[in-house]
């Protein structure tokens, strides 16, 4: 029976919470379609006993590829592993929670299999015996009901779209398989890694976050962001653009690759509001945006937006907040 395979990513020794959320959602789809769901895990030095616990989240079997080539989070060897699993399992659908590695791996798999791929799925439905996704688009102004024409369909779900539960404590059989690696997958290798270092306050715990983006112009622009954050008694957050540019530490990054935050107040300054930033902060209580471009997507999901120069507005706001004491 052609079932559903869920690529479950191992991060820091454990299967990611995002992957587990998708595995559980796949379980609901699988039940509606009457097909089994299997977990596919790639890595090196994996602990089968630990992975058996994926049975408690809906996997009927856990298939494990354990190889040094799969240790480093490089996507292409994972494509090979998934393709090997596909040959044996004949899955009708593949799913993964969006991450840097899984999105690339699912893209490569779709190309290899000639399969359709849907990115940023936020809902999964069983309709007429097939899986139909809801794909959010155009700044979340529309939900496209996206299905597949191809024999196999690949779904990458939006980060945080499906929250994981604690599971039912069950286990599933773990079966190992040996991927056949392609030459080009071995022509790319991890040669260095810098771990994100936690600096400053934990932004996930802050009640107020003042976030800065590339609109600050340069690294020193974070000075006024820090002052406003201090006035509010909050902490500072940042976009990937400024973290990649070295303006602010990675530990402050909010979004798909960074942290997910839900402060009471989120003040976005000089941030365009790309979807990968939004997914990390849309659960905030009140969202304020200060941006000089009235068409910036951030205004589509702000409660209060100011079209203006942050260099004027932010210092004024800091002074006003301080004056209230």
């Amino acid at each position: 029976m052609a079932g559903i395979a869920v690529l479950c990513e191992v991060q820091g020794g454990d299967v990611s919470r995002g992957s587990i959320g998708v595995l559980e959602e796949a379980g609901r789809s699988g039940a509606a379609l009457g097909v089994p769901v299997e977990a596919i895990v790639c890595g090196s030095g994996l602990d089968d006993a630990k992975l058996a616990a994926l049975g408690g989240f809906g996997a009927s079997t856990v298939r494990v590829a354990d190889d040094a080539l799969l240790a480093s989070g490089i996507a292409q060897p994972v494509v090979d592993a998934c393709a090997t699993a596909q040959e044996a399992g004949g899955y009708r659908y593949w799913m993964a929670a969006a991450s840097i590695m899984t999105a690339d791996a699912m893209a490569g798999l779709a190309a290899r299999l000639g399969a359709g791929i849907v990115i940023d799925a936020v809902e999964l439905h069983a309709e007429g015996g097939a899986l139909v996704t809801r794909r959010s688009g155009l700044g979340d102004s529309v939900l496209a009901h996206c299905g597949f024409v191809s024999a196999v369909g690949v779904v990458v779900t939006r980060a945080n779209a499906f929250a994981a539960t604690d599971g039912n404590g069950g286990t599933a059989p773990v079966e190992r398989f040996a991927p056949s690696f392609r030459a080009w997958s071995q022509a790319v290798a991890l040669v260095g890694h810098e771990d994100a270092v936690e600096t400053g306050p934990d932004i996930s715990a802050a009640d107020v976050l003042v976030a800065g983006g590339r609109g600050l112009g340069e690294a020193s622009g974070f000075g006024q962001i820090e002052e406003l954050a201090t006035a509010f008694g909050g902490a500072v957050a940042a976009t990937r653009a400024v973290v990649d540019a070295g303006w602010y530490p990675y530990s402050a990054q909010v979004g798909q690759t960074g942290k997910t935050v839900t402060p009471n107040l989120y003040v976005a300054c000089g941030i365009s509001g790309a979807i990968q930033h939004k997914v990390g902060m849309q659960g905030s209580g009140t969202i304020v945006a200060i941006n000089k471009d009235k068409n910036a997507p951030i205004f589509d999901y702000a409660d209060f937006g100011i079209v203006g120069d942050l260099n004027a507005v932010v210092p004024q706001l800091t002074a006003l907040v301080k004056a209230r004491g």
Partner: peptide, 9 residues
């Protein structure tokens, strides 16, 4: 950038 920090590839 990856979820755990920065990779050199």
């Amino acid at each position: 950038q990856v979820e755990t920090g920065y990779d050199t590839v």
